[in-house]
Amino acid sequence: MMLTEQNNKADQNPVDAAMAWHGGDPRATIEALLQDRIWLQEQLAIAKACMGKGYTRGWMPGAEFEQ
């Protein structure tokens, strides 16, 4: 089975896709997701520092989200 075929099947579920991307290694998957989280937090901090409150009418980006 080719890697692209494997990824197409795993794309139906994001957890399966993440696991497939890391060859089924749960430790590597978790480590990558934690590193991605750190990177995204840094990007959010940069965006927040660059935004003026007047531009956004007082709204500032944050890590909060609704589920």
Rank of each mutant, 00 (worst) to 15 (best):
C50A: 09
N7V: 11
G54Y: 01
A28I: 12
F65M: 01
A47E: 15
A47Y: 04
D36L: 10
P61K: 08
A10W: 13
A18W: 07
W59G: 01
R57V: 00
Q43L: 10
Q43V: 12
H22Q: 09
G58S: 04
R27P: 02
A17F: 13
D36N: 08
T4C: 01
N8Q: 13
T56A: 09
E64I: 03
G52I: 00
L40H: 09
W59T: 01
G54V: 00
G52F: 02
G24I: 08
N8G: 04
L34Q: 15
C50L: 11
V15N: 05
Q41E: 15
M1P: 03
L40V: 11
A20M: 14
R57M: 04
D16M: 09
E66V: 06
M1E: 01
A63E: 14
W21V: 12
K9T: 01
C50S: 14
W59Q: 07
M1S: 08
D16L: 09
I46V: 11
I46A: 02
I30R: 14
I38R: 10
A45C: 03
R57P: 00
N13D: 15
H22W: 04
A20C: 05
R57C: 00
G23H: 13
A10M: 10
R27G: 08
P14A: 01
Q35M: 12
D25C: 02
A45L: 10
G24T: 08
A10P: 11
G62N: 14
G58A: 08
I30D: 06
E5G: 12
Q67V: 14
K9I: 02
T4P: 02
Q12I: 05
E64F: 04
N8D: 12
D16V: 00
A20W: 03
D16I: 00
I38M: 06
E5D: 15
K48Y: 02
D36F: 05
T29C: 09
N8R: 14
D25V: 11
K48A: 10
D36R: 08
A47F: 04
M19E: 06
C50Q: 13
L40P: 01
C50H: 05
A17R: 14
Q43D: 07
G54W: 03
W21K: 12
Q41C: 12
M19W: 05
A18Q: 09
K48M: 02
Q67K: 15
M2Q: 05
K53L: 03
D36M: 10
I46W: 01
R37Y: 07
L40Y: 15
T56R: 03
L33F: 05
A18C: 07
R37V: 00
A63P: 13
Q41S: 11
Q67R: 14
E5W: 07
V15S: 04
L3V: 07
G23E: 15
A45W: 03
L40A: 14
T56D: 00
E31H: 12
